[in-house]
Nucleic acid binder design. Structure first.
Lengths: 186, 186
DNA sequence: TTAGTCATGTAAATCGTTACATGATTGG
DNA sequence: CCAATCATGTAACGATTTACATGACTAA
């Protein structure tokens, strides 16, 4: 019974709107398209797919490729309705849990050089994300120019890029602050 | 056995470094000080406190106030060591799961006015957070001017303010985009 | 007197990751 | 032939939330 805290269902239904797919291809699609704000594991994905099929929100069709078992899922009308209903509900707040920030906040009880290294590693990741999402936007504008989903896809990439850029700027500032602290104390 | 994916332990240990507290006051401190990047429930907090006491990382002392039971916890040397050891480890990546973004990404399958309302509600929250954290920084500089933790506290508030500001700017842009789409289609 | 705050916990349910288990196909 | 990729799943464990249960103190 659709516990409804489980959002995996809607991720799957949303992606199936763009066309049928297997557990494997959906996993790849999640990483590629929404990986900057959502992730799923196979352990979550495969049971959810079977559950959606049981509930009639998706249709499961065996499409073996070679000797390999393969199940393709497509969305049903009931599935589209379930997705639309969920889209109407106000989104729940982000459950924020950022371990880097914890280590910054409690920074005084650790070693400054280590903290700086954590920050530098994070900065590299933030920069990579920001750049990757900027490129994604350019690619979308060029290659998906007439997809009806385009504005929504652009918006999500844009949000990712902006947040990553803000995080990167903050990290640069933080590294400076820590370096100053390092210089002041032996 | 310190499963070590459980970060609640370190949140508690870190806060106890600033002085002893009860489960209730720690919950309040988490919300006030690190609520913009971390949250805990009582269901997590109280068992963790007892566990830390069992392991000798915190000391539990009964301090009833009136007829009311009350347990004050303080950090031990072993607790400080455990915190310091954890601070050395590289932070794990943020497990990102942002429901608003999911609703934006799948926006085409829902109603535009509803999406706009979700965005407007989120914008208000982002603006509130940004403003609140800016004020927190000013307050910290004034009232905690000589706390040795000051730079670390400022850094975390700064990160929250920057990210919230970036999100707010994005939300304003997103609302515009959705309004344009609404104007274009009946 | 009543609402709000202070205060501590447990139990059930669920959510989610990680590790395990297996094996075919494809490109170099 | 070997590594990477395609492909599906389960089991165990652990993390986390939510609801429940209880009750004293305090200020308006």
């Amino acid at each position: 019974m659709a516990t409804d805290r489980a959002k995996t269902r809607y991720v799957v239904l949303g992606l199936l709107c763009a066309g049928p797919g297997t557990g494997y291809t959906l996993k790849a699609a999640i990483e590629r398209a929404i990986g900057h704000f959502w992730r799923e594991s196979y352990g979550q994905l495969y049971p959810t797919l079977n559950q959606l099929a049981d509930e009639g929100l998706a249709e499961k069709v065996s499409k073996p490729s070679g000797g390999r078992p393969r199940y393709e899922y497509s969305i049903t009308d009931a599935g589209r309705e379930a997705l639309a209903a969920w889209l109407l509900e106000p989104p729940s707040e982000v459950p924020v849990r950022d371990e880097l920030m914890l280590k910054v906040f409690f920074g005084r009880y650790g070693a400054l050089p280590t903290l700086r290294e954590h920050l530098q590693a994070s900065l590299r990741r933030f920069e990579a994300t920001a750049q990757q999402l900027s490129m994604a936007q350019a690619w979308l504008r060029k290659e998906q120019a007439d997809a009806p989903d385009l504005p929504f896809w652009l918006l999500s990439a844009d949000r990712g890029a902006r947040v990553a850029e803000a995080r990167a700027q903050w990290a640069r500032h933080a590294i400076e602050v820590i370096e100053n602290l390092e210089a002041q104390s032996p």
